[in-house]
Design a binder for these strands. Structure first.
Length: 589
RNA sequence: GCCCGCGUAGCUCAGGGGAUAGAGCAACUGCCUCCUAAGCAGUAGGCCGCAGGUUCGAAUCCUGCCGCGGGCGCCA
């Protein structure tokens, strides 16, 4: 069923059409003056010129042409020609009741699920996840879940950095530290030990050491480059060692991502497309898109009507090596040809905008991705410290994701203790609650910002139990659960949602029925903050209703059942919203 | 230099060409014999960076300027 605003828009569109005007003028939106009416139609102002009559008069004519007594309540024309619109209480109640019985809460499902890849990892093998991986993980997971809820077949790809120079550096470094390891015997073909000779903790200090040496020691750098090439050519010992790096890193990443409720369907890495690069380059050559420039192979992606200078995409360096653009292009090819993706969304740092512009243009020019496949960079801003600059530790490093999560959970635990909350629960449950509260705080602190904005990371603010925070949302959801639990104990059963009788009740209902529109916005803009904002509004409207209408002591049984029905659908919506944001709700707090 | 993004309340941030620009925090005032007060109600706080333009109507679209951040071929 179409959303309420879609229904209203159709009704007003018909009215405009009956006057010989374009039905698009009938668009009905949520009112900017809710004290006057919940909805408004501003089409008369825009249509006045085409209609050749004053906007107010036209608005009157539109209102007169409306014939939907069961749906449209009071209408009035205000100001220069705004049409204020109310819906009948009956229709509002019925709409909420339909939402209650609908598995997707009123969201229309497409006939066919489009295959979509969401690329939102960007983690690197042998390097610990850090603050830079926080936003793609949180935002990407939310986008993926939102697309799925809207009926797409969306899968997440971590797109691991597992194949670059950093691996060569590590190999070269380890080779000096442990020349006796079997992996370094050029003749050895295996089998090699199954147990990794290095742990994640080892890698976390080995990699910075190797990278530092690479910068200052030219001979070491040459050995690292050589190791990279040999790895990519398939030297068995190097491959075996590399596989260990990947295995221990991925295991560790899964734990950290898991704490954030982030999971990937595809754990593909850059290495995966290595073998298709050479054929791809021939394909590009055959398409006439390949050029040589200063000894390198490039694709010139500039267009005649460009307002800015777009440098060519470099595919093969003058020394024969590949670059990350090469890998990304090959990944596009795999997604189109093998995964049959209809769209690929890249949830990647805004600073990579030019890179994606180049890769996508090259993909079009070389015929790797047809125009019908959507390739889109969905950028996000930086996570800043209190000074407004990208977050750093005291030593100037990027803070680790694991420590950020631990800090959030610890802070949540402190708050619980300070406020004497959840003290009567068992210790284990208390800790589990603190974990959910801390993670929710961290995630909501991020998700309430628009994707492209930079934001200030202020843990104290995020874990605050007052105001627009993750904990507030969890508290609201838990309080709703508590009502339904109490109702069950009293053998009270939720029933048909009736037309509202109380302002707060009506306000909540009007909020709930917006869900399909809000979801559509989140989908269209790939912006979870619309859902985050809406979840807060739902919670707030519920809390108002909760204050105004005492559900469990309501004497009228059908009214009480209706309210329980409303409570039930509110909970389902709130839990759905939080689930789309990948935020877990505890049973109680 | 060229290009991209941002500039909204003391602070942190929302904001979809529409009426009187919102929220949270901080400040101030109320509300627990009642379903979880991690709540609710209220007060106060604004040349939406500046100047033009388009439009019946601009925080929103366009141009210029100022300020901040970022990007710009063999790193990722």
């Amino acid at each position: 069923m179409p959303s309420l605003t879609a229904q209203l828009s159709a009704i007003f569109g018909d009215a405009f059409a009956s006057l010989g005007l374009d039905p698009s003028f009938g668009a009905v939106v949520v009112s900017s003056r809710p004290e006057l009416a919940p909805y408004q139609c501003n089409g008369a102002l825009g249509a006045a010129k085409a209609a050749g009559r004053p906007p107010r008069e036209l608005a009157e004519a539109v209102v007169a042409a409306i014939d939907a007594p069961g749906v449209i309540g009071a209408t009035s024309v205000a100001g220069p020609g705004f049409i204020n619109i109310d819906v009948t209480p009956d229709h509002l109640g019925a709409t909420v009741d339909e939402m209650r019985s609908d598995a997707s809460l009123g969201v229309e499902q497409p006939g066919r699920a489009a295959k979509v890849i969401v690329d939102y990892g960007g983690a690197n093998v042998a390097k610990a996840l850090h603050v830079g991986h926080l936003r793609p993980a949180i935002i990407g997971e939310a986008i993926k879940r939102t697309l799925c809820f809207a009926g797409a077949d969306a899968v997440g790809d971590v797109h691991l950095g597992d194949w670059g120079m950093s691996i060569g550096q590590l190999i070269a470094h380890l080779r000096e530290l442990h020349p006796d390891w079997p992996y370094f015997d050029r003749e050895a073909t295996g089998p090699f030990p199954e147990e990794s000779p290095v742990s994640v903790a080892d890698l976390e200090h080995l990699y910075p050491e190797a990278a530092a040496r690479y910068k200052v020691d030219a001979e070491f750098a040459a050995r690292a480059r050589r190791a990279t090439v040999e790895l990519q050519e398939g030297r068995p010992g190097y491959r075996a060692l590399w596989q260990h790096f990947c295995d221990v890193s991925i295991e560790d990443m899964k734990a950290v991502y898991g704490d954030l409720n982030v999971s990937f369907e595809l754990w593909y890495g850059e290495s995966r497309v290595h073998d298709r690069i050479a054929p791809m380059i021939e394909r590009i050559r055959a398409a006439g898109a390949l050029e040589e420039s200063d000894g390198a192979l490039i694709v010139d992606v500039a267009e005649p009507d460009d307002t800015k200078e777009i440098p060519p995409l470099l595919l093969v360096k003058s020394d024969g090596g590949y670059l990350y653009g090469t890998t990304d292009l090959a990944t596009v090819e795999e997604r189109v040809d093998d995964l049959h993706a209809e769209a690929a969304y890249y949830v990647v740092d805004a600073r990579q905008a030019l890179h994606f512009e180049q890769v996508f243009r090259a993909a079009r020019k070389a015929g790797i991705a047809p125009e019908s496949v959507v390739l889109e960079h969905d950028p996000f801003g930086t996570v800043n410290g209190a000074d407004g600059k990208p977050m750093r530790t005291r030593d100037g490093d990027l803070p680790g994701l694991r420590s950020l999560i631990a800090a959030a959970v610890e802070r949540a635990e402190q708050r619980l203790a300070e406020n004497d909350l959840a003290t009567e629960y068992p210790e284990a449950e208390r800790h589990a609650i603190a974990k959910k509260v801390g993670i929710a705080a961290l995630k909501y602190g991020d998700l309430q910002n628009h994707r492209t904005s930079d934001y200030v990371f202020d843990l104290d603010r995020f874990v605050s139990f007052e105001g627009k925070t993750g904990p507030y949302l969890l508290y609201s959801a838990v309080r709703i659960q508590s009502i339904l639990r109490n109702a069950r104990e009293r053998a009270l059963v939720p029933g048909t949602v009736l037309p509202p009788v109380h302002d707060a009740e009506r306000g909540l209902m009007l909020r709930l029925v917006r869900f399909p529109d809000v979801l559509a916005r989140a989908v269209d803009f790939r912006s979870p903050n619309h859902l985050a904002e809406y979840a807060y509004e739902v919670a707030t409207d519920f809390n108002r209703f909760y204050e105004a209408c005492h559900i469990l002591s309501e004497p009228d049984p059908s009214r009480q059942a209706s309210w329980l029905g409303l409570v039930e659908v509110t909970l389902r919506l709130l839990r759905t919203l939080l689930d789309l944001l990948a935020i877990d709700v505890p049973e109680r707090m």
